[in-house]
Design a protein around this nucleic acid. Sequence first.
DNA 1: AAAACATATGAGCAATTGTTCATATGATGA
DNA 2: TCATCATATGAACAATTGCTCATATGTTTT
Lengths: 122, 122
Amino acid sequence: MTEKGLQEAERCELIHVHEDIIKKVDRTMPDDETLYDLADLFRIFADSTRIKILYVLFESEMCVCDIAQLLGMTQSAISHQLRSLKQSKLVKYRREGKTVFYSLADDHVVTILAQGMEHIEE
Amino acid sequence: MTEKGLQEAERCELIHVHEDIIKKVDRTMPDDETLYDLADLFRIFADSTRIKILYVLFESEMCVCDIAQLLGMTQSAISHQLRSLKQSKLVKYRREGKTVFYSLADDHVVTILAQGMEHIEE
DNA sequence: AAAACATATGAGCAATTGTTCATATGATGA
DNA sequence: TCATCATATGAACAATTGCTCATATGTTTT
């Protein structure tokens, strides 16, 4: 027979994980909204242009135009990316006349990038 | 006049960053290949399904089918994602008969996710 | 007010991505 | 060897993304 219910997910013949592991996973797993936020955050780090911008800002606060020149990219491209970085609260900015200076918002940027580096350098 | 050379990048009237900052950036910036690898690594964390899989594996090694059930997703979807995680060396696996058990490959996974969590929880 | 400079932003396009569906591979037991 | 279970994988499709181009906004100077 083995008629498969259509709406329920496929099942293995036997479940390998113990009951208490399942319970623990349920307790530990953050809720979906948090997981989406977390994925969104890492998506910001998932682009080499944005990583370059962050590395540049390690050294000093900098205006959009200087970053663009340093990275050899257009002002528009950099501005778009700074927008993402700003929205994720990874960078902050201050205005000084016509110029807007960007800088790192907190230490997590450094830590996260450093951990990533450690991983790929193995 | 201010005739703009076409091939050179746009310039600000005056560069704000100091000469020595520029030099330091050039010294500190990892090469492009490394930056791409780093971006690729973070791209793996940029999806909530993969994050869920990693969270599940925090508790215990687990087979593909169990993960699929726990997350309410198809075997195929999970298998595809495990492939990415495997390629990034974030998970490892061992075969036991028909079953393949996956587990976390190293501690960076935990650290990186934890740092990400800290950031979004502020 | 007008011109010039720095930055921001919207539309559009090519490229990438996550899932589904169908099917292939691999291992076990009858 | 054949059927079955567990896993892997290729093709296809919708959705997302990063850049470019054109233009808008905001600030300073004349």
